[in-house]
Write a protein that binds this DNA or RNA. Structure first.
Lengths: 282, 282
DNA sequence: AAGCGGCGATACCTCCCCGGTATCGGACCA
DNA sequence: TGGTCCGATACCGGGGAGGTATCGCCGCTT
């Protein structure tokens, strides 16, 4: 199977429309139709159901969509990492570390310090990205190592090492009745009148249904809490970042948040290994 | 990057010889040279060092070899799994389970029984393969789920669930002085005169250097032990398989062997999920 | 030192296949 | 029943992949 065919199929499978897929690929529609037919013939499998109501995926098509996306990511990763390796004349390319904006501030600073103090340390580019994007950045080669937070971030398909575990707190506007308590339970928070949990965007940018206000980052979120429009359950380590007017109360039965360092499983980079070693020694 | 280019590069990088690589690929040498040059130009990276003493890999080339092999495996997996999905008219393709020949006999039987008793169970093809091949079978789509043994098998890049932990025993010919002991230590075994540890083949079929006899499977190994030519450290569960003339003595400080069930991280197969659930309930 | 063999690069040719334009055919709709 | 939306088909042109022949370089031989 050629990557061209895979890219074509993934485009059609995502758009479920030959015309739009062709446009997105920058080619005309007829060659796209032909390429997909040819792919189906060579695989001996019907991938798409062409109905008058548009195009739908067959079971085999769904499999190829998932597996094909993973394969295309692997190819992108190969290309990117090769380019990066070639840029480093010393054989010591820099490392790209990715983490969520607004999280792990202190831990990240300590990690960078500890690593920089090691002999043979190389430059570390820190990339801050949106929710849920880290795994993709690691898989397609735009990043070499990530700081993730279980159970929020998926670590499937990555090698990880646990760094830090912490409980969670509910962040409330100052003066809220619950702020007097030494701790609360999840059920207390879920039932708060007028302070719904906010909604985070899905990977495709849309928002799930629900009552809470849509938010894109932690700053927005905390501002909404301060305005009395929302409540938020966050790891304890947000406490130092809380502005005046916000109070954090421990949630006894919220799941523990574990900060982990993660990297692609077949990584053989010395720099990543050293970074992981530094992290585990923190 | 096209898979054709990747395949060509991987062939050259593995052979370190354009002529042989071309032969292996079934093409002539000049187009291969051209394709590699073009790839290097497009990546803006030197991948190979052409010296009069043959071809060597640059740093960037090493990166592309590793990443490229992973990407090609992902593409093979996409193709194979799509084909398999298309063969199953009910949307319930069979599952391919892979494990080492001669190991996990009892556990595997129990697992297959437990899974078969579940509603909606599908056919399970059991593939027995050689040492160290399981990961590759999972990654390139020839298998869907595997039984592995830590710490011998690498589980990098796979999702796993622990099933069973056991100690190890040293297998000796009956009558050997150590067979009177209730347990031994690694240092006792390492120093045994005339009973060296056997050598297992590497992934490419060659054998590492050393004193022990080369072996390919457990039957060979146990026969050599019975002949007084070798000793072997194996998981406790081999005891029932031991023929007369062989004695097992627990090794107190040998690493614990954990049997795990493993599957590709992005697997969405219902059947694999059910199999894993059945396994964890054993 | 000249010859020779091994190996990758270059030159040049051919043909396939990819992509483009024009058009068709069926389904749904007013 | 004409319109239009959408994928398939027909046909054409150009680029690129692969083949053969040959070159250029290096190291070995005697």
């Amino acid at each position: 199977m050629e990557t061209r065919e895979l890219r074509y199929f993934v485009a059609v499978a995502e758009e479920l429309h030959f015309g739009r897929a062709a446009q997105r690929l920058g080619i005309a529609q007829p060659p796209l139709s032909r390429a997909i037919q040819q792919l189906e013939r060579r695989l001996g499998a019907a991938l798409l159901e062409r109905g008058s109501r548009g195009v739908t995926l067959t079971d085999a098509g769904s499999v190829l969509l998932r597996e094909g996306q993973a394969a295309l990511d692997a190819i992108d990763a190969a290309e990117r990492r090769t380019r990066r390796a070639a840029l480093a004349p010393t054989g010591r390319p820099g490392v790209v570390l990715v983490t969520k904006a607004g999280a792990t501030g202190e831990l990240l600073a300590k990690l960078l310090d500890a690593y920089a103090a090691e002999p043979g340390a190389v430059a570390v580019d820190v990339v801050l990205c949106g929710i849920g994007e880290q795994e993709r950045l690691l898989r397609d080669g735009r990043a070499d190592v990530a700081l993730l937070h279980r159970p929020f971030d998926s670590t499937a398909g990555l090698d990880t090492e646990d760094l830090h575990a912490e409980g969670q707190v509910v962040v409330l506007p100052a003066g809220h009745p619950l702020t007097g308590r030494t701790h609360v339970r999840m059920s207390d928070v879920a039932a708060l009148p007028g302070l719904p949990m906010p909604r985070w965007p899905n990977l495709d940018g849309t928002f799930p249904d629900g009552a809470g206000p849509p938010v894109h980052n932690h700053t927005q979120l905390l501002q909404l809490v301060a305005l009395g429009r929302a409540s938020a359950i966050l790891p304890e380590s947000v406490r130092p970042q809380l502005r005046n007017g916000l109070v954090a109360v421990p949630v006894a039965d919220a799941p523990t948040v574990t900060t982990v360092i993660a990297w692609p499983p077949h990584s053989r980079s010395r720099a990543v290994a050293a970074l992981v070693r530094a992290a585990t020694r923190l």
